[in-house]
Design a protein around this nucleic acid. Sequence first.
DNA 1: CACATCTTCTAGATCGATCTAGAAGATTTC
DNA 2: GAAATCTTCTAGATCGATCTAGAAGATGTG
Lengths: 338, 338
Amino acid sequence: MTASPRPTMADVAAAAGVSKALVSIVIRGAVGASLATRERVLNTARELGYRPDTRARLLRSTRSRLLGVVFNVTEPYHAELVELLYEAGEAAGYGVTLSAAGPRRSEQRAVESLLDLGAEALVLIAPSTPAAGLAQLPLPVISMLRPVRGDAAGSVSSDEDAGIRLAMDHLRGLGHSRIAHIDGGTAVGSAARRQSYFSHMADTGLAAGASVFTGGNTEADGSRAARELLDAAGRPGCAARPSAVVVFNDRCALGVLDVLGKAGLSVPRDISVVGYDNSRLARLEHINLTSIGQNGPELAAAAVRAAAARLGGGAAEHLLVPPFLEIGGTTAAPAGSS
Amino acid sequence: MTASPRPTMADVAAAAGVSKALVSIVIRGAVGASLATRERVLNTARELGYRPDTRARLLRSTRSRLLGVVFNVTEPYHAELVELLYEAGEAAGYGVTLSAAGPRRSEQRAVESLLDLGAEALVLIAPSTPAAGLAQLPLPVISMLRPVRGDAAGSVSSDEDAGIRLAMDHLRGLGHSRIAHIDGGTAVGSAARRQSYFSHMADTGLAAGASVFTGGNTEADGSRAARELLDAAGRPGCAARPSAVVVFNDRCALGVLDVLGKAGLSVPRDISVVGYDNSRLARLEHINLTSIGQNGPELAAAAVRAAAARLGGGAAEHLLVPPFLEIGGTTAAPAGSS
DNA sequence: CACATCTTCTAGATCGATCTAGAAGATTTC
DNA sequence: GAAATCTTCTAGATCGATCTAGAAGATGTG
C-alpha cells in the first residue's frame, strides 16, 4: 500500500542522461542504439525498478502485440488451454489477455471487452458464435476446438476422426471385433464421431457388426445407453454382447461404467470401454479410463502461429492436430482370446 | 477483417456539434451536462457505433476502476468464482481483468501483468504468496479462500468451522453419534477442519468417541484412510465401526466411497459419508455426494465490496462467508435407528 | 439593474508510451 | 579532403481518453 509513484520512461531517461525516445528504443529492443548505451539504459531501468506501462504502450503502438483469448469458465479443459496459450503466446512475443464467457457472461461481451482493450487478434476457444458473426469482427480470429469453414476465421482443432481411429485401432489390436459405439446424441460433434466409427468399422471389414446406441453428454445419458446395450444383447435374434464400446466422451463413459459394474460385468475383463477427452475425470485413479486426449500444447502453439500468420496477411488456415491415446485400466484383450 | 477505423470521442463530438470534453462527461455519466444534450450525444454515439477505448481510459484516469483477478487454472472451482467476480465487479462499476497462474505461470507473473495494465485493486484467489509478499504490493489486495491476518491484505473466505459444523449437525440430526473424520493430511486447511471436528464432538458430548484417520487431497489418500478405518473397526479392543464419516474434501471422499463399496458396505445404509467442496465431482449423478459448498455469489460480492472499501481508505477487512449443506444420497439415518 | 450563483459547456494540458523526421557525429568512398 | 552513407541520438507530435480551469449563459436576489 506504499504509494511511491512508479517510475516512467522519462524518469529512466533523466537518470541515464538520454532522451526518452532512446529509452523506448532500448526497452523495445529496436535497432538504433549502441551496445554501450543499451546496457547503460537497461541498468538504470533495472535500478529504478522500471516496468513499461502496458496501458500507454497499448494506446500508442500500431501493433499492440496483444492476443485476446476467450474461454468458457464452465469447461475445465479450456482452463488447461488458457495456460498453454499464455506460454505459446509469450514465447512468440505476444501478450495474452483473457476474457471469460459463461452462462452469465455472453461470448459477445467477452469479445467486446478484448476489442476495447486493443487486442490485435482473437483466439476463441470453442466459440458458439456462428461463422458469419466471426467474419464481422474487425480483426483476425482463430477458432479453437471448433472447425470453421471458409475465410471467416482460422481454425485449429483436434482431429476427431483420427481420435476415433486411435481408439478403434487400439481395440482391434487387442483382438476385439464386436465393437459398439455409444454416441453423443444431439451433442455437438456427435455426428462426426459416429460417422468416423462407421467408416472405420467398414474399413476393417466389420461394417456388418456395427451397432450404435444413443448416448449424450452426461453420465445419465451413458447409463441409459448402457442399459439399452445390455438389453439388446439379451434379446433373442440380436447380435451377441459387444466385447468393447467406444463412448462419445468421458462423462458419458462414466455412466456406462457405472451400469456395467452394477450389472455384474467386470471392466475390462468382460467388456472394454474407451472414453474421449482424457479429462481429469478419466484420470481419477480409481476410474483410470482409457481415453482419447487432445494435444493441448500443440493446439495452443498452432493457434498462436495461425493468429500471427493471419496478422501477417495470410489467408485463414484450418489446422487439425492429431490427438493421442491414453491407455488406462478399462481396456484389455477380450475374454475369449488366449 | 474490414478495417474501418473505429470512431473516437472526437468523431462523436464533431458529429454532435459539441466539444469532446462534453462527450466524455456524457459517456462517463458525470454531472455537468443537460438532459437534452446528454440524450443527443448518446444518440449520435450509438449511431456511429462508438465504444470508449479502454486503453486510453485506463491511461488517463486516476481511478482506473479496473479490478485485477488472479486465479489458478488447475482449480475448477476458481473458474466458477471468476465468473461470479465478473458479475459482482461489473455490478459495482468495476471492469474485471483476469490473469491466470498455474504450474507454468507464476502467481507473481500474473500479478505483475495486472499491475502493468493499471489495475486499481487485486483479488487473488487462494494465493500462494505469503502475507508479507502481499503487503509489499502497491495497491489494495484481497485474498479469497485463504484467510490472511493483519493489515497486509483483506481476506474473504468461506467459514470452514461453520462448514464442518453443518456437516456434523446434519449427521447428528439423522441420529448418528459414532462420527469419524478423515482429514486432509498435510493439505492446506486440514488442521483447521480437524480442529473443528474435535471441538464439535466435544460440544455435543461425543469427545470420547472422536476418531481421526489420516487422509489427504486425492482419491488414493481417501482409499488408504478408508482401509485403515475398516481395519481399525475389525481389531479387538477397538471401538465399533463408525456409522458416519466426515471427509476432508470431495476427491478424498470419492476414494473413501470406492473402498467402502468394494468392501461390501452400502452407502448410506451401512455408513454415511459427507464430503467438502460440493464440487462438480460430488454432483455427478451417480456419485451424488452429500457435501459442504461455498457460497460463491456471496464470496464474490464480498470480495468486490472489500476491495472497494479498501480503495475508499478503509482498513483491511477479514470476512467469513457461511457455507451451505448440499444433501446428496450418501447420508441417511444409521442402520440401527427406527 | 447590478451582482452573485448555478448550470452548461469548452479549450487545452495531461497520462506514458511509440513513432516520425531530422540533427549530430562517425565512417566509408572516391 | 569533400561528399555520401551509416549509426546514434533527440525533439516533438501523437494515440484517445480524462481532467482542470475558466468562459458563457441562465437564474436568483436585493
